[in-house]
Design a protein around this nucleic acid. Structure first.
Lengths: 102, 102
DNA sequence: ACACCTAGTTACGAAAAGTAAGTTGATGCT
DNA sequence: AGCATCAACTTACTTTTCGTAACTAGGTGT
């Protein structure tokens, strides 16, 4: 790595959000709490990566995980306040894609 | 790949914007036209990847490339209208990072 | 002829992603 | 008891992408 003049906070944010699938997972969670399998079927992402990304997002405090000890077990993921604060950014990307992607 | 219920335009947008460095490169270009070496020194990205990303962005019509046949040659990259239309989204991410990333 | 400058490209080992099969723990079925 | 089922992961393995550093091309200046 080299020195860079860019703002470290933005760089760190993009290190998280710039990973494959991350933003689409968050977009999906804007709909409300969802279980592992729901997210997996909504997106073309594999269980392996989904699991990895959700852990990263949890670690960053963007997403939380709640286990319901039913049978079979149910696990729900949902946005924290930090995660909900990303809605504006995600909606802007959504708008852009509607206008500019054919 | 599996079937997914997510909007294909957003998915395609994220396929571009979700790649490593892409958004930071665009953020950098919000400052105005810049040469290859300027972008390279502003970001911790290598020439190899910068070249690859700029080609992708050019192909998608987000960025344009202008060659000045001076000595030595000068090449400038700048945002098209499609690229400038991303400013809102990028600024939202920037705001989020200022508020939520320590 | 040789060094220098920008703007790349190439080669190659390392890390991340994609795919598919396997694991865990609590049932219910026969 | 033994086996199948279900969600939510996890492992093993192949393919793609990344990171680093060295190299190339075209046009000077010395």
């Amino acid at each position: 790595m080299k020195e860079s003049t860019i703002c470290p906070r933005l760089a760190k944010a993009m290190e998280l959000l710039g990973k494959r699938w991350t933003t689409l997972i968050l977009y999906q969670l804007l709909e409300g709490p969802q279980r592992f399998n729901e997210i997996e079927s909504a997106l073309p992402v594999s269980g392996r990566l989904l699991s990895e990304r959700l852990k990263e997002l949890e670690k960053e405090g963007v997403v939380e995980r709640k286990v319901y000890t039913e049978v079979p077990v149910r696990v729900e993921y949902f946005l924290t306040d930090k995660g909900k604060a990303l809605e504006g950014a995600i909606r802007e990307v959504e708008k852009w894609s509607q206008c500019w992607i054919k």
